[in-house]
Design a protein around this nucleic acid. Structure first.
Lengths: 174, 174
DNA sequence: CCGAGCATGTAAGGGGTTACATGATTGG
DNA sequence: CCAATCATGTAACCCCTTACATGCTCGG
């Protein structure tokens, strides 16, 4: 799975411009996938060159014109073949956990500070997800809600574990 | 954070060869960071060229010789400056969730199959982590145990959420 | 004799990031 | 007038992945 696959998927629902695609990369999609303009525009150009999408210039008033892309038959087939390909396993990469792994090189004050920081960041993301969840759950398919639910539950589990750990560290050393 | 930082961290504990470094990239480290030989060897060469590590050839009997690397002062300083740099936020990328996000293009049987598969894979990883946790918890620092605890708890949360979702999907449609 | 484990590397290519470059319009 | 939003793109670079290439030794 790469940006190409995800962009094709977004265009399978409705024609979009590069700028609009970028906006779609927000919650809940951004929880498990993201792409920047530096990826989106070259990818669109590549997809068009391959004949998977078609550009249409839309003249707008009071705003710059935009290039709206829509799927061709070949693009629809390409997206389908992504859906039929084997599912890759999740990638989870954590700078924070790497540092905890090397905690022997840190004093406990620094450890505690970092954990408190990580709790704060995680909780911020969590409240964002909770809002999403309450707003849009009704008109979402059961499978689609998994995206929000997993996001929310992973967040909650992480927060809980971090708070436990912080308690253990501050209990034994301060 | 990149391979360079993590390799320096591993060498800060003890001198290692490339092959031995690869072996260190197992649980629990592999849960939140990984590197292949194609990364490790070039990174070691680069670190040596920069003067951060020192090579020593060790002649072995009954096995090929190996190049054991140890940190120089400059390497120790480099690792320290990594520890002082801002902590990057976690990266979580999920092919599975992207597909759930696009579930409107799939029939419910496929959805259910995929979820059952994902549950199986997640549970496999979970039992592996649980074994680790029971084996080595005693002689690990509180901060270090976070790595295993978060791994285990995230896994458990994901499994729970997937099972709930599967129930909802099979209830309403079959 | 063959496969598995030990051991080190290279080369090509993929896929992404960040920063730069440009420019229009709208609202405060 | 200035900041924000809309809008598109490029260029340099980084980092990693996969596959290839080599070769030794031990145990079955």
């Amino acid at each position: 799975m790469n940006s190409q696959d995800v962009i094709l998927g977004l265009l399978a629902r409705q024609p979009l411009s590069g700028y609009e695609i970028k906006q779609k990369f927000e919650m809940p999609l951004s929880f498990f996938f993201d792409a920047s303009f530096g990826t989106i525009y070259p990818t669109l150009a590549k997809l068009e060159a391959q004949g998977h999408i078609m550009k249409e210039s839309v003249i707008q008033e009071g705003r710059p014109n935009k290039n709206v892309y829509s799927l061709t038959d070949s693009g629809r087939a390409q997206f389908q073949s992504f859906l039929e390909s084997p599912i890759e396993r999740d990638v989870f990469r954590s700078d924070f956990l790497v540092r905890m792994f090397f905690s022997e090189f840190l004093d406990t004050d620094t450890q505690a500070d970092w954990i408190r920081d990580e709790i704060r960041k995680t909780e911020e993301g969590g409240s964002h997800l909770q809002q999403m969840r309450q707003l849009v759950t009704e008109d979402m398919s059961p499978a689609r809600t998994i995206c929000l639910d997993i996001g929310y539950e992973l967040n909650a589990a992480k927060t809980r574990t971090l708070k436990d750990a912080l308690r253990r560290i501050t209990d034994t050393t301060e």
